[in-house]
Structure formats: C-alpha cells, structure tokens
C-alpha cells in the first residue's frame, strides 16, 4: 500500500514512466490504482540522447517522418494514456514530490507489518 499511497499523493505532478520495452513516456500523473497501473495526461514520448536504443517515437502517432528513418517527430494523436503497472520499469520522480522523512517513516511502518 506504501507506493499506492505515495503515487496517489503525486497526482498532478509531471513524471516520466520508463517501460520494459524501453519506451519512456512523460506526462502529468492523472491517477493510479492498487496494481500501480498509471494514467498520464498530456503525454509525450521522451527522446533521450543518452539512450540511442531508446525508441524516440510514440507508437500512436507518426506525424512526420524523415526518409532516412532517423528522425520521427511525434504528433499529438495520443494525449492521454493508460500504462499497465506490470510493464513499468522505472518512474522518474520530481524532486519536489519526494519527502524523504515521510518515506522513511512509511517504510518502517510497512516493514513492521503494515
């Protein structure tokens, strides 16, 4: 329940969700459930230079394509999306959305059998 509660408090903030297929989607956290399924709003797919193998395009929207296949600008066909919790690898959190003391307390409480 710890992380379910944590993510509920994070609703409204911008996060980057990295999936197990190497896609990274940035957006405003809209909601979360007990499986840690996530709904994002105003989404865009993250282009990370450091990650050449990271897919820089959204599967949903392909607005313009350069013929050498290198640069795929993604459009706005998908603005909101539902991400199944089971395919999440990481969520990058905004520093202002992390209260370290609160997390420590919640973790100790959970470890004691919460």
């Amino acid at each position: 329940m710890l992380f379910f509660s944590y993510f509920k408090d994070l609703v409204g903030r911008e996060v980057t969700v990295e999936l197990k297929n190497d896609l990274a989607i940035r957006g405003i956290l809209h909601s979360v459930d007990q499986y840690l399924n996530i709904k994002l709003e105003n989404t865009r797919v993250v282009d990370q230079d450091k990650y050449p193998h990271m897919i820089t395009i959204s599967i949903f929207d392909w607005e313009s394509v350069d013929t050498s296949f290198k640069i795929l600008q993604f459009g706005l066909s998908v603005r909101n999306c539902f991400i199944r919790g089971s395919v999440v690898r990481y969520v990058q959190l905004p520093p202002e959305g992390v209260d370290i003391e609160l997390l420590h307390d919640a973790t100790r409480r959970e470890a004691r059998g919460g």
Partner: peptide, 17 residues
C-alpha cells in the same frame, strides 16, 4: 497480461496521418 499501454486516440490528427 499482454497489454502494455492503452492510448486515447484523437481521431482528428490521427485521420490526417
């Protein structure tokens, strides 16, 4: 179990693709 992402498709920009 086989679903990763479900996106809401805006018909208008999509139809222009």
């Amino acid at each position: 179990d086989n679903i990763s992402v479900v996106g809401e498709l805006d018909e208008d920009p999509d139809s222009r693709l």
